[in-house]
Write a protein that binds this DNA or RNA. Sequence first.
RNA 1: GGCGACGUGGCCAAGUGGCUAAGGCGAAGGUCUGCAAAACCUUUAUUCAUCGGUUCGAAUCCGAUCGUCGCCUCCA
Length: 468
Amino acid sequence: MLVYNTLTRKKEEFKPINPPNVTMYVCGPTVYDYFHIGNARSFIMADIIRRHLIFKEYNVTFVMNLTDIDDKIINKSIEEKIDSSKVSQKYVASFFEDIEKLKIKKADVYPKATEHMDEIISLIKNLEEKKLAYNSDGNLFFRVKEFKNYGLLSGKNTDDLELGSRVEVNEQKENPLDFSLWKKAKAGEPYWDSPWGKGRPGWHTECSAMSVKHLGKTIDIHAGGNDLIFPHHENEIAQSEGCFESKFVNYWMHFGFLNFQDEKMSKSLGNFFTARDILKKYSAEAIRLFFCQTHYSGPLAFSEELIASSEKGLEKISNFVEFINSKSSYGESEGVECSFDFDFFLSRFVTAMDDDFNTPQAVAAIFNFIKSANKYAVENPKLNSDFFVKAGEFIQKTAGDVLGIADFKQTNKIDQTLSHDLVNLLIEIRQKAKVEKNYSLADEIRDKLNSFGISLKDSKEGTTFKIS
RNA sequence: GGCGACGUGGCCAAGUGGCUAAGGCGAAGGUCUGCAAAACCUUUAUUCAUCGGUUCGAAUCCGAUCGUCGCCUCCA
């Protein structure tokens, strides 16, 4: 398996520290608002990477942090005149609702910053003892100049950064590049007690502290959006490696942005759609397929038309699932032996995913499979059920388990409900009407069913239906 | 100013030195059907922003030009 590593700017052979175990940490949301569809891209692609590692029989421990204390949360609590913990609770709850709707597997742990104050404080204390951090009137800062590898991940050198005009000027800092580890509480702000007085952790500190606590000093994969490379991940490396004196992360993975109208979708620009709003119009599977059709690392332009076209593409998969479903349960056990080469298509899919999670190629492998399997079934009308069972397994493994854009098992269950028997009964009655050339009755049955969202489809082998 | 990504058919998007340049949407034709809808099948880039260069051979490597975007401040 090859994985592109931001740190080395190359694709590298993936070698976990402790195979078959893999430790994976993904930067989660700051819970001050609903997350937008651009955030969803990162969460979904991280989910797919994890699912593929599981498919490859790795034992993955997946951690996603929830930043539940920070300036934006405090601002929101002031705006809405409620306690900051109420703000974070509300958006933690909505976060879980949304990721469930997006068919994202739950992480093994969702550590919260506010529940790891001891770990955060001891990390900062350690840095202070090593002179990598200094206290400036109750605020703790990291001394960037003392950390040799600073800038390695983002490809920046400290001299260039100093020349940049955008570096924040803060009288309390020895150097404008130094970043905040602990913020002294202002009047009215939430606070935790520390050796330096009342305050709260800086943004970066929590990830270092929680990653080591739940996954260990050195982890296999740390992932997040492109915009986290600098300064967030750069600062995490400085803190963690400064504190523990061992390598923090072996593979750094970063997701490209979702753009809208030629600009990065972001809260601050206001050009965003929340994931929950998009979910009102489009299925989770269509959203996931839309993201899979572009490689995770590149930019992706968002528009409703594009999601709509993915929704259409998805129909090709769900039609195929329905087709094999209708055959696998009733299929003949004594038909023609199948000679279809399932392994060829499965290996194309796996090869694509093994090459730095190339989901566009993996999706192409699925569509190629469907096209060939359809053709094969047309050319070999008396196939035994073996073919359809294997086709179902193929879809379940690839589109189901790994990409999360189809669920063969679930559809299969629905097939066996009473409502299906009832619809089939109506189809039988309609068939009799058709034989008697009573087309007005036949059409009436079809139209009525259609008005309930059940569309009938006549073909040579009989009538099938689809519930929308 | 520093660093980085990108420019492939009507739209989206893989491919990064050599078989016929994946796949999806759209479009056109066909099969099926009492009609219809759906489904399925077939077709749809001698060409990869432009101009040079390297090479037996380049969308793929090198250089220049044009254009787009991102990071350097909170951001997935």
